[in-house]
Simulated scan of single mutants.
Amino acid sequence: MSFFKKLRESIASKTEAVTNKFRDGLAKTRDAFVGRVEELFTRRKKIDEEFFEELEEILIGADVGVNTVMELIDDLRTEVKKRKIEQPSELRPILSEKLVNMLRGSGEDAGLKENPNGITVILFVGVNGVGKTTTIGKLAWRFKQQGKKVLLAAGDTFRAGAIEQLEVWGNRVGVDVIKQEAGSDPAAVMFDAVQAAKKHNVDVLICDTAGRLQNKANLMEELAKIHRVIQREIPGAPHETLLALDATTGQNALQQAKLFGEKSGVTGLVLTKLDGTAKGGIVIAIRNELSLPVKFIGLGEKMDDLQPFDADQFVHALFAGLAAAEEEEK
């Protein structure tokens, strides 16, 4: 077997594995949300006001968000008139297309921003219990798989056990953790971490911070101080400030994203625990209503279940059932 054939097969195998992760991770959302859409499209024989009202109800129930749903329904109404569509089944590919476009946004902000001339600094923020530390560990593993040298900074000096939890992940992944005593100044930890990263020629420095409520002024000021310390030592850093959100909290995740985005310089989102919720539509609401890109999604507990967000993969996995129904009708 030639080298290029092996390479093609390897790429195809990895692509299929990612596709399967999206499909399996979104199973609950697909069963609850898309299953109801499919049932509606099959049961209804014409597109009328009742059809749109029922579709609206299903989308809102899947936490797609009221504003996003209204926009989506308006777009579908326009397409129905423009294309003179009469059968609900003809709306299936149009609905998929509209969702992909919403999730893509401008497309310019896809992927992590990395520093081409030195250390890439990624700062994580978010409330407690959303899976922030676990996500940091999984992201560190991803970078290590790419052959990069990674360092972690234990900036959550507030929560009992937070430093130890990050150390457990550091040991599991095989990366060092820069820490101080519990109760220390988080900005001082960041200073130490940046110095260590420079000394050891680290490629990526990933920084944990205390889980904070966005309405706590002192914690938000602490975050601003962390930003200043990092920027002073590495101009242009942090290159990403990622907000971790628990997808199972639905609309509450959207509210957190709005408030954090306004106050803490968030550049992207990580949605955790998508495999554990039927309300995966929240991804669509967050992406459409905020100018913040979803960078990663958590699709399970395994190390490689943190996946870069891909709008096409997401919608394809979500609408696998509808695609199958379309094929049967042909």
Rank of each mutant, 00 (worst) to 15 (best):
D74H: 08
L76Y: 09
E79W: 01
V80F: 07
K81T: 11
E86V: 07
Q87P: 00
R92K: 09
I94H: 07
I94F: 08
I94L: 14
E97S: 15
L99Q: 06
V100K: 15
N101T: 13
M102G: 02
M102K: 14
R104L: 15
R104K: 15
R104F: 02
S106A: 10
E108V: 13
D109L: 12
D109H: 04
E114P: 00
N115F: 01
N117S: 10
G118F: 04
I119Q: 08
I119S: 11
V121T: 13
I122P: 06
L123H: 03
L123S: 05
L123M: 15
L123F: 04
V125M: 02
N128H: 11
G129D: 11
T133F: 02
T133G: 12
T135Q: 05
G137C: 11
G137W: 01
G137V: 05
A140G: 07
R142H: 12
F143P: 02
K144D: 00
Q146L: 13
K149N: 13
L151Q: 07
L152N: 09
A154C: 10
D156N: 07
T157Y: 04
F158E: 04
I163Y: 02
I163K: 05
L166K: 06
E167H: 14
W169N: 04
I178Y: 01
I178V: 15
K179P: 05
Q180P: 00
A182M: 02
A188H: 06
V189G: 01
Q195E: 15
N201S: 14
L205K: 07
A210V: 04
G211K: 06
G211C: 07
R212K: 10
R212V: 05
N215Y: 00
K216I: 08
A217V: 14
N218R: 03
